[in-house]
Design a protein around this nucleic acid. Structure first.
Lengths: 159, 159
DNA sequence: AGCTGATTGACAGTGTGCTGTCAAAATGAC
DNA sequence: GTCATTTTGACAGCACACTGTCAATCAGCT
């Protein structure tokens, strides 16, 4: 993504801004991921484990349901879920509605780990968000939501 | 990242907005990456190859220089660069200033591939950016730039 | 009941990026 | 010039997410 250097094809100004946005998205992704790993390391989790564990805090879900909820593939979530169970941070419950699709639920250790992370997460988001204008931050969130929508529709049109 | 479900620790409103921003960042990252792959596939590249090739369009650079320029690790770039050379899309030139750090430069085939992509990229960014308010898009870019800065400084403080 | 298609878990393989380690080459201090 | 430090490429290993395929299960239709 983002080479930029090429010859001059028809370009709109907004398109150029979006190109910059894309580059920042990649940077931010890397930065947020790194921050998440700093937070999770002391608790013995990884960012991905945290994400999956967080998805079943409120109610147990089958692996495929978690994947749907967070736009990941079944296979990715399955791998993490098996690891979480292996480490004693979550467990599989029989699913009355589906014999194969067991329900994933955090164990006490799992809940405890996530509780520890919640505090660190709030400290982090408070600290970082304090460095940007609140109104602009909201605007940015709105733009990002629209971009997500636009990408999904664009993909649907050409899928 | 982004579990959310936890108990109530001290939270600022801006912090909560940032949490949403983080979730959108992950979604956008995935979406942009997918879009890039759709564009690169017909040309026989991948998104990562495009990125590396794009970095040496203007002037040949050693692998370590490319890594620095785009905040990646030497090793990641080295792997891609070797693949690009293997596929005939780039070549290593002797570096007068450093015996081991050969310079990477696209071949004619490499330039041609990127040229093809530039067109697709502009079509894409024009198409998507047309769906958001231009002024808001600029605001969002500014916020993202500040967030990148804030993350880097935060990391430096605690690194 | 029986059949078809979608969902689900299991397994294999790929691409990407990271860390860690080592030796060769370049750099800077003395 | 010499030596310690830094930079660089090479190699190995790990985490993550994706695609593709297969068989078991489930859901809906006839």
């Amino acid at each position: 993504m983002t080479p930029l250097g090429g010859a001059g094809e028809p370009r709109t100004e907004a398109g150029d801004v979006l190109t910059e946005v894309i580059m920042r998205t990649f940077r931010l992704y890397g930065g947020f991921l790194a921050a998440a790993e700093v937070m999770t390391a002391p608790v013995g989790l990884t960012a991905a484990w945290w994400q999956v564990l967080g998805a079943v805090l409120r109610e147990p879900l089958p692996v495929s349901g978690i994947a749907r909820a967070m736009s990941l593939t079944r296979q990715s979530v399955q791998r993490i879920a098996d690891l979480l169970v292996d480490k004693g941070l979550a467990e599989y419950l029989p699913n009355p509605a589906h014999k194969r699709a067991k329900l994933l639920r955090p164990t006490e250790a799992g809940y405890a780990a996530v509780r520890g992370l919640t505090e660190a997460q709030h400290a982090f988001t408070n600290r970082i968000s304090a460095r940007v204008d609140p109104a602009d931050l909201r605007t940015a969130l709105g733009v990002m939501e629209r971009l997500v929508e636009a990408l999904e529709e664009d993909e649907r049109d050409r899928g």
